[in-house]
Design a protein around this nucleic acid. Sequence first.
RNA 1: AGGAAGAGGGGAU
Length: 438
Amino acid sequence: NKALTVLDEMKKCGLSPDVHSYSILVDGFCKEGNVSEAWNLFEEMHRRELMPNVITYTSLLRGFCSGGEMEIAIKLFREFRDKGYGRDLMAYSILIDGCCQHGDLDGARELWHEMIQDKFTPDVFCHTSLIYSYCQNQKLQEATDQFEIMLNDGVVPNVVTCTIIIDGFCKEGHIIEAFRFLNEMEEQGMNPNMFTYTTIIDALCKIGSSCGAWEIFGAMIKRALVPDVVLYTILINGLVKTLDLEKALMMYEMMSQRGIDPNIFTYTSLINGLCSAGMLPTALGLFEEMKWKGFKPDRVLYSTMISCCCRCKDMKKALEFVKSMETDGFEPDSIVYSSIIAGYCRSNNMEIALELFYKLERQEFRLDRSMYTSIIAAYCRCDDIKKAVRLFNRMVESGLLPDVYMYTCLIERCSKLSVMSIAELLLAKMIIVGFTPK
RNA sequence: AGGAAGAGGGGAU
């Protein structure tokens, strides 16, 4: 907005801003997510008979892309291109990336062909966008194939490309492959950066290998890379998940000593950790402190607060958070409802849990496995195997397949009640469908 | 003056 003021002053002084100035403004507004203001400026250019160039309009299109308005972006692109506003590789790259970010691989491929017909050669950015999209959609084979295609085309991958592939391996649980790729990239003389290390450290935390995580952390420090808020948050979250609240709080302390401010992700992890340690009041206090500092709770944080209250059996407080969440414009989702149903089950309020469960079903809210698991587990706890099995069958009939949680819950109970035949049957079934019992 | 990558929430024990 300050930039806009300067623009107005320029006009008042009788100066006419050029395409360059307008492009900077269009880009700025789009990056703030204010596409309509960018569009106004674009129109204003026309009124002043200034012809936008390829940079002006791709800046605008990028705004539409990040806002998920891909159809509009592509339509406008073809229009501008054919109007003679110019076109270049980056224009195609931005649109291809837009499709990739929104999982529209077909759209990306279509533009890719259009780009080649237009005599442009895809560069490392274009290839990387595609590879990213394959990784996000769990198509690792296609991702590595695309990587090969890129090499064959003589396009040299960079640290971003490699980190995306490493992340792809990590998220699919192929840590060994990720390390193999990391070594290969280092042998090629490429230096991992913060993103690379962070990706690997997160993966190691998530499989519970804290030794591995700290080892990589050390290697990173040796390379004079400075941990940022994302890395600290990953470490805090890792510690919280291993129920080591003390160390998590130490990390939190350490990051503030180093002058790194926590963000909403950091607070969410910490609040979760406090609550897992049974310190609900402290968690609530941190929530208030965070709001006091000017952070606006988002959907995930509200969901965390609700789950925390439910796990600490404070259902009254949980419902209060549901209210504030709705006031702030977030509708409770299935994760929130699962927490609440589980909360009622655990606090011996089966009637209320069931009431909510069936109410959601009547409202044709998509019931998910977690909700069934909470109730089935509760039936199991009071040895009402008959009701548990009845609900289990209903779940399967509704098209939901049991998962590890569900199997674990039933097997455990059957073994305790010495119904070993059923327990063994379930165990066998579980292994056959591909789950690994712990 | 314009393009690509990393972190947080639910169910059994």
